[in-house]
Nucleic acid binder design. Structure first.
Lengths: 236, 236
DNA sequence: GTCGTAAGTGGACGCTGTCCACAATAACTG
DNA sequence: CAGTTATTGTGGACAGCGTCCACTTACGAC
């Protein structure tokens, strides 16, 4: 019983899906080639018709994980009401982006770790010929920051490059409280840290935040930013 | 020819040293038990007399890598002249900490990745019975922030918990520009991002930085913060 | 209808982490 | 100082992994 042929590209797509499932369950190290082929129902070597080696499969899985993160960020942004250019709405959208980022890292630790574990080689170019930042986390962040600058919340001369420190702060928090040394903190403390980081960014972003902007807090995804006093951060 | 016995604990220490070497060259995944035993000159199973499994060896290597990072941060701080409590010196020490952190991540990417890749189990308690934060990155950061608060640069009511957003920003930048999607940026851009993040932190930290504090820039480790205009950050 | 090529199979290799039973030394006991 | 015991290193084995090779099959183009 040789070769129960599948439709064009079904095996490749199946391998990526299977790899994504493995990554969701156990991070990048868990995406093992043989197991993926087993899930697709094909012999291990079949994978080598679609990927040069395991790293190339992992690269595809990473790209998929990154896209899922980007999509969740976009969904979080879209959930914030208010017309483009409204200062409060723009700030709410920035908060929504950070919240979506941190929630993804917490709810899908395996996928989050995989999204940023792209192997040495294989940068895996996006197939559609865009500028390459439409559906990436950085692309979404830039769009919101541009809106903040348009709305006058963020001064134009401070706009350039500001996405990197902001991304770093949110990403660093996600990593440290995810797999990092701050991982087994209680949820309340984790929320407190997220709130702390959010206000840290806000205070660096704008000289004086209008009261209306602070009201935009309620627009956040699902009460992730609990205003109640959480216990102070734990040691080490 | 059985057993050319070594002094007490020499094998264990040798395994950790060998593991550290492997981690330095290739990150946490490269610390492979059999290779470490080969370097020590012992049979693979000998490792199981000192570690329950590979993860426990990795945990020890992680702790060593983390300690090396902490020591470099301490060295960077110690290099900044100026008495304790002097605002400019305190700010210089904060900058030195961040610089040391980023330089370690850039010069020793394998060790840096390993330091934060502690396996699921095996938290690896420090043997000396201290409070557990003396020689850790967080401990050093806290000490400098305490000094900044004492010196009046950082308001006391903003002191609590501020170490986490700052750590997150620096760590996030290190990760993103190290193994992350921003890894193959030219050095000049990388420095510009570091400078950008530093001023981002400064602006969130203090309402108005005294001019004297800005002069403390010169105290930084080795001109990592080049004041010259670097090209703007690259795309994606 | 023939034929080239893409796609899947089977078997093998070396490497890894880990387990078991055994041997020899170091350390403690009397 | 003699004998027991715990510690440490050895040898051999196993399954699972990534990867390579030679072979076979089905599909699509001419």
């Amino acid at each position: 019983m040789h070769q129960a042929r599948r439709p064009r590209g079904a095996v490749r797509a199946g391998l990526v899906t299977a790899g994504l499932e493995l990554a969701r369950a156990g991070g990048p190290d868990a995406v093992v080639l043989r197991e993926a082929t087993r899930m697709v129902g094909v012999v291990p070597n079949a994978a080598y018709r679609h990927f040069a080696d395991r790293d190339e499969l992992l690269a595809a899985v990473c790209a998929a994980a990154l896209r899922e993160l980007a999509d969740r960020m976009a969904a979080g942004v879209a959930r914030v009401r208010g017309r483009h250019g409204d200062p409060a709405a723009a700030l709410g959208r920035l908060h929504a982006i950070g919240t979506a980022y941190l929630e993804f890292a917490r709810q899908e630790p395996g996928l989050f770790a995989t999204a940023f574990a792209l192997p040495q080689q294989h940068t895996y170019e996006a197939p559609d010929g865009g500028t390459g930042q439409e559906r990436t986390p950085l692309g979404h962040l830039r769009a919101v920051l541009d809106e903040l600058a348009d709305a006058g919340v963020l001064q134009q001369r401070r706009r350039e490059g500001i996405e990197y420190p902001i991304w770093s702060a949110v990403h660093g928090l996600a990593v440290l409280t995810g797999q990092g040394p701050l991982r087994d903190l209680p949820d309340a403390t984790r929320h407190r840290l997220a709130e702390l980081t959010r206000s840290f960014i806000d205070e660096s972003l704008i000289a004086s935040m209008p009261p209306a902007a602070q009201a935009a807090d309620g627009e956040d995804a699902d009460g992730f930013h609990t205003p109640g006093r959480a216990p102070p951060p734990a040691e080490r």
